[in-house]
């Protein structure tokens, strides 16, 4: 552990598990948001929940944060269970960024952080946290005047101001431009470098593969698969994805049976072929289309990603699922 010692704080569990949850179920009136979820996050790990909108990521995270009581299941965070009389102590050690919190618009960046810092028994100097998220020049600016990316970094700063052992980040970069997204990633990576544990949710696969040691791909309240991003992609057994649009009907079985192709999935108006050998698959595909008298509109290939893992598991694309 590279983390500095925590004085009188409760020692981390000996087994090095930061979050453990088993059989987690959360129902709302008409939907089961989380339908039996098991996961473990190790100390010092960055764990990602990856899934489309409505998959149950936020619900899961809010249960773990002790904000929503689960209907069933066991949750243990940093060795404590919520509601066992140690909630206050546990909150001291968690940094939380909720999806969609709007901080008070009339306060300045500095005032907001001072306020959050005052809630914790131990906190980092406000100026230091402002520097961490690179908001020095906005220190005295009102929150209402910040850009989306700056607001998001302030939300991160509010989570970091207590110098937490563990960070929960719910879609920390959704809606941000690539530049702003990089800055958020940078902050998360520096937190990890200090030994902190992170659990984040995202529906951006590049974010998951860049930041996370392990990801769980979620859909409809369940975990479909869980593992290291590279391992999940490798398990697809393909090295390229060929995506094309065509005018006319093509049969999925025929596409899947082409040499060098492992599978074919139709998403919306496009086809996605998982391809093992691009040199065999591409001529075969073109030949097949010609045989069917179908005109090709566009074609692109890319390296397989987590997104393709999701597509292969659900038959839907992550973004429009």
């Amino acid at each position: 552990m590279t983390r500095k010692p925590h004085g009188d704080r409760v020692p981390l569990p000996a087994n090095g598990v930061a979050v453990r949850c088993a059989g987690l179920v959360k129902r709302y009136e008409d939907v089961t948001a989380v339908a039996g979820l098991d996961l473990e996050v190790a100390q010092g790990e960055c764990f990602g929940l990856l899934g489309p909108n409505g998959a149950g990521k936020t619900t899961t995270v809010e249960v773990l944060e002790g904000l929503t009581p689960p209907d069933e299941g066991v949750v243990e965070v940093l060795g404590c269970r919520w509601g066992s009389g140690r909630d206050h102590e546990l909150r001291e050690r968690l940094g939380v960024q909720l999806q969609e919190t709007q901080l008070g618009e009339k306060l300045t960046v500095e005032e907001t952080l001072r306020l959050f810092a005052s809630f914790f028994a131990r906190s980092r100097p406000v100026g230091e946290v402002i520097a961490t998220v690179e908001l020095e020049e906005k220190r005295r600016a009102r929150v209402g005047k910040l850009s989306g990316g700056q607001k998001q970094r302030l939300a991160l700063a509010c989570a970091l101001v207590s110098d937490p052992d563990m960070l929960f980040l719910d879609e920390p970069t959704t809606g941000l431009d690539p530049q702003a997204r990089l800055r958020v990633w940078d902050v998360v990576e520096r937190f990890r470098a200090r030994g902190g544990t992170v659990l984040l949710t995202t529906h951006a696969m590049e974010e998951a593969s860049r930041l996370c040691d392990r990801v769980a791909i979620m859909d409809r309240g369940r975990i479909l698969t869980l593992g290291r991003p590279a391992a999940l992609v490798a398990a697809l057994g393909v090295d390229q994805i060929v995506e094309f649009r065509a005018r006319g009907e093509v049969a999925a079985e025929r596409l899947a049976a082409l040499p060098g192709v492992r599978g074919a999935v139709r998403t919306d108006d496009a086809w996605q072929l998982s391809v093992r050998r691009i040199d065999e698959a591409l001529p075969a595909l073109l030949g097949e289309l010609e045989r069917c008298g179908v005109a090709l509109e566009s074609l692109a290939t890319h390296q397989a990603t987590l997104e393709d893992v999701f597509v292969s598991l659900t038959g839907r694309a992550l973004r429009d699922a």
């Binding site: 944060e65 001291e92 909720l98 959050f116």
Partner: peptide
């Protein structure tokens, strides 16, 4: 504060 989820955010602190 409730609409903007700020109450919830506060509830997540000690």
């Amino acid at each position: 504060a409730r609409t903007r989820k700020l109450l919830k955010r506060f509830a997540a602190t000690p």
